[in-house]
Every structure is written in structure tokens, then in C-alpha cells.
Amino acid sequence: MKLKNKIFLMVGLLVLLSGGLAACGKNKEESTKEAANPKEVRIGIIRVPNDKQVAIQQDFFKKYFDDKGIKTSFMFFDSGVAANQAFASGSIDFAEMGYTNGVVACATELPVELIWIHEVLGENEALVAQKELGATSVEDLRGKKIATPFSSTSHLSLLKALEEAKIEDDVTILDMETAEIVAAWERGDIDAAYTWEPTLSKIKETGDVLIDSRELAEKGYLTANIDLVHKDFSEKYPNLVRDYLLALNEAVELYKDNPEKAAQAAADALEITEEDALSQMKATEWLTLEEQVGDGYLGTSDNPGKFHDVFYDTAVFLKEQGSIKRVPDEKEVNRFISSKYVELALEK
């Protein structure tokens, strides 16, 4: 090779090398910028005495986020529908809801992931009839008006209860938020309602419980409250999602070790009595990190748990009811329900 050609080759290599180093520097800078912690984590809550309320009151979230310079803010949602709207607008990072709204989120391809089962529902959700009806069974509601928040766990449970009683075509179902249910109940505008706490306790004062979600779970219709995370957040900050779950798990462990202390924390957060909080908490089943990835629930990344099947079956059911336009396939469901953050938490 001639000297002149060698010089040109060396110059060319230097130009390429310097360009590559500049690009690497730029990528490193962008990567660092992406990994920088957010100033705030925005968390949606519902008014039930569960692990999240305990974690808030016991400052478990602050324990994991404050030392990183991250503020935690909490926003109340009366329904999963409202929480999904917040996810769609990008105004929230985490939110809890009944898992049926998680099915809706999956079916409508919201950019979220299911990362946690808060509690498996039991006596804390129930179908209650006005006492003056004298109803003793679901069948006695034939021809009556029943309220429930649509696309919620209560809605699903109500429809299953009506199917079991073979009166699904013989009642009028009204879509109402929980606050509306109480007002309609007191006016006598509705004959029955399927709802959750604290609304449930209010209508039980002048009503009769006909069936609850624990009874339906025993018939194979499991329902649960779950937590979703926005993918914009989880893809940037997987370790913060892990820390979020560690905070929730501390609340679960506290409840299992000292239920009275956990109940007092939830009661303080919700401004109810400790007795009411403990009663509602005992009506559900709380899961630790290890239990979350058990075969009966989320399962692992390699071996999806039974909850994936429950999720898919619910999607089929909601499609039949006209609540969603399409049923996500098995692969979509398995991508939507993510165990990897629980697995990260178990590694720490």
C-alpha cells in the first residue's frame, strides 16, 4: 500500500473512531438521563382497608422513595374505570382496581402491566337486598332493580350470581358508582345492590345479604383487587416498581404478624374504627411476595399461574356481556400479567 493511501486510511479510521466515541458518549448520557429517578411517583388508591392503605399509613412507601429524593402522591379513584382513564391520559404511574378493569385495560391495549394482587375478595363484596323485600335468596330478586358499578368485580360477581340463580334475563341492572348506590338505596330507587366496602356496610344496615364473593369464589368465580403500573414508568424504572412491591409486601407481612396493628393503620387512613377495618380485612385473603408467584395466582415468568386463566375466562365473559369489544389472546394475557417485578423483589 502506498504511503498516501495509508495516510488517507488512517485519517478515515480516526474520523470513524471519534464519531463512534461521540455516539457512545451520547448514548451513555441518554441512558443516564433515562435512569435518573423521577421527582414524583403518582399512586392511585381506592377506599378499602388493604395492604396499600397500611403501607401509606406506616410510611413504607416513604421508606423506599424518600431517600431517593422521590415524592409519593396519592389520588383516590372511586372506580377502576376512572383509574384507567387516568392511565390513558398518562397522569398516573400506579393504580389499584378490581381485576375486571384490568381485563378492560388489557383488551383496550392500555400501556399498563398487572404487577400485584392486593387481595382475593370474600365477604367484603356482596349482594344486598332491601330488608322490606323479605328476600332470602338471589332468586327472590326476579323482576327487581339491582345496582352495581359496571366493569367492576362486583359487576362480574353479580352476573355470575344471577346466572347461577337462572334469573339473569329477569332483572334490571343499573350502572352506578358506589356513592350513587348509597343515595339510590336511601331513596328506595333500587331493590338491591352488589358493591364493596365501605358502601357495603352502609346498605347492610337496612338490608339482607343474599350472597357474597367468598361464596362465589367457592363456586369457581374468584375475584380480586389488583395493581397496575404504566409502562412508561416500569420500562424506565423497573427497580422502583420492585421497591413499590417491597413496600406493599411489608404491609402484608405486618398484617400477618400483627393484624391489630395493621387494622389500626388502615382504620386511621380511612377514618373508620379498628374493629370495622379488621372485620373487612379478615373478609379477604392477602398474599406475600412468595404467594404472589404461586401456581394459584400470578405464577412465574416461566410458568404462568392460574390467575392467567381466570383473567382470560373473565375477558371471554365480559366480551359476551358487551363490556369489551375483543378478547385478548393467551399471549397478550401472559404479557399483560407480569411476575418479573415480584421476582426482582424476591431477589433483593
Rank of each mutant, 00 (worst) to 15 (best):
D276P: 00
T288A: 00
D169Y: 10
N5D: 15
A165R: 10
L298Y: 06
I324Q: 02
A105G: 09
C24H: 14
P238E: 03
K144V: 00
L141H: 04
L248I: 10
S91A: 04
A283V: 05
Y221T: 07
L210P: 00
S73A: 13
G25V: 07
D189M: 09
R142A: 12
L162C: 11
A95N: 04
S18P: 00
E180T: 07
A265N: 13
L298H: 04
N303M: 06
P111N: 10
L16Y: 06
H118R: 04
Q85F: 07
K261V: 12
F94D: 14
Y237S: 03
A345F: 10
G299R: 03
R187G: 08
A105N: 07
F65P: 09
F76M: 13
L216E: 03
S79R: 08
T108N: 12
L110G: 06
K204H: 00
D169L: 09
V182G: 00
K219G: 11
C106L: 03
T100C: 14
T284F: 02
A126Y: 00
H155A: 12
F76D: 07
C24T: 07
I115T: 09
S234E: 09
V11D: 04
K261D: 15
A165F: 10
A82L: 15
M176Q: 10
L162T: 02
E119T: 08
A269Q: 15
T314I: 05
T108Y: 02
S31D: 15
G296I: 01
F233D: 03
N37G: 11
K2Y: 11
V229C: 04
E271Y: 12
V54G: 08
K26D: 03
E320R: 13
L114Q: 15
A105V: 07
P328L: 05
I324T: 06
D313G: 06
I115G: 08
E177H: 11
I211L: 08
